[in-house]
Design a protein around this nucleic acid. Structure first.
Lengths: 166, 166
DNA sequence: TTGTCGGTTCAGTACTTATTGAAACTTTGC
DNA sequence: GCAAAGTTTCAATAAGTACTGAACCGACAA
C-alpha cells in the first residue's frame, strides 16, 4: 500500500468512527488529517486536502479546539493560523470523556434528581421512583468512576490498569 | 411533580441521551418507556404512548432486541407479542459496549492493520507508520480492557472498582 | 484611507437519516 | 381454504444535520 492510499484510508475510517461518536464526519477527518500530518497545517491546506469549504473548515476546526483535540499554532512572522492535533491517544479519549460527561451525563443526573420528586401517592408512582433511584445510583457511580479515570495519567491506564483488572 | 410529568420528562431525556449514543431518539424512548412500565407492553401500546407509526415501532423494537436491551415476552393465551426492558443498568451498559465495540472498534483495528503495510520508503512514510502503530497499540489496549470489563459482573463494578481505582 | 489577507458568520441548500403508511407476509382458528 | 390478528418490509417523504459560498469583520501595510 502506498503512503497516499494509507493516509486516505485512515482519514476515511477515522471520519466514519467519529460520526458514531458525537464528532461529525468532517470534524473527525480534519482530526485524522492533522494526526498524520508531519507539520502543522493551515486552514487553506485542510480545505484543499479534504475538499471542503472555508466555512466548513473554520467551524469544524474551532469545534475541535473546543473539544481540546486540536491546538492553534501561531508561527512567528506568519499571519495565518496553523493547527496541530493532540497526538496522545489517552489525552484524546480523556478530552472526549470530559466533554461528553459534561454534555450528556451531567444533564441527565439533573433530570433524574428532578423527577425523583414525583408524588409517591400510588403504588405505580413508588415503583417509578424506585427505578429512577436505581438509575441515579448507577449514573452517579459512572460519573465518579469517569472522574477518577480522567484524573489518572496515561501511564496508569496503559500500564497498571490492565494488570489490576486481570 | 406528577407521575405523568415525571414519566414524560424521563422518556424525553432518555431519548435525547440515546441520540448522542448511536441509539436513535425513538429507540431510546421506547427503551425508556419500557424501563418505567410496570408491565410488559405490546407494540400497540408503545405506538399509542409515543405517537409513532407501526413500522417505526416495529423496526426500533427489533433493533433494541438486537442490542440486547429489550426482550420479547410471549404471554400464554395471547397472540400479541409483549416487550420488557432489561432493567439492570450494568447489563444495559455492557450490551452497548459489546455492540459498539463490534461495530466500531473492531473494524477500526482491522483498518489500522491494513494500513500498517504502507511502504516505509520515505521518512514521511516511516513517521506515518509510527503514528499508526501508536494508535493501534492504544486501541488494542482499549479493546482488551473493554473485554475484561464486560466479563466482570455488576457487583464487581458497583462495589470493588471504585475502591481499586481510588 | 484603501487594499489585502485571513477569519468568522449565517441563510440557503444539499445530504443524511428517520418515519410513515400501505402492501405483503405469517400464524392461527374455524 | 379462508378470514382475522398480528408482524415485517420498504418506497416515498419528512425531519434533521452538515456544508457552501458570499458577505462581513478586523488587522495590518502601503
Amino acid at each position: 500500500m502506498t503512503l497516499k492510499e494509507g493516509k486516505e484510508r485512515f482519514i476515511q475510517s477515522w471520519g466514519a468512527l467519529g460520526s458514531s461518536w458525537g464528532i461529525n464526519r468532517t470534524m473527525a477527518q480534519i482530526h485524522a488529517l492533522l494526526l498524520i500530518a508531519p507539520e502543522s497545517l493551515s486552514a487553506e491546506e485542510i480545505m484543499e486536502e479534504l475538499q471542503i469549504s472555508r466555512g466548513n473548515a473554520n467551524m469544524n476546526i474551532r469545534a475541535l479546539i473546543d473539544w481540546g483535540l486540536v491546538y492553534k499554532e501561531l508561527k512567528p512572522g506568519e499571519r495565518k493560523e496553523f493547527f496541530v492535533a493532540e497526538k496522545d491517544m489517552w489525552e484524546v479519549v480523556k478530552n472526549i470523556i470530559v466533554q461528553r460527561k459534561k454534555r450528556e451525563l451531567e444533564p441527565m443526573l439533573r433530570v433524574l434528581d428532578e423527577i425523583s420528586s414525583v408524588d409517591p401517592e400510588s403504588e405505580e408512582a413508588r415503583e417509578f421512583i424506585e427505578i429512577i433511584r436505581e438509575i441515579k445510583l448507577f449514573s452517579n457511580k459512572a460519573d465518579s468512576t469517569l472522574d477518577t479515570l480522567v484524573k489518572a495519567d496515561s501511564n496508569w491506564f496503559v500500564g497498571t490498569f490492565m494488570k489490576m483488572i486481570k
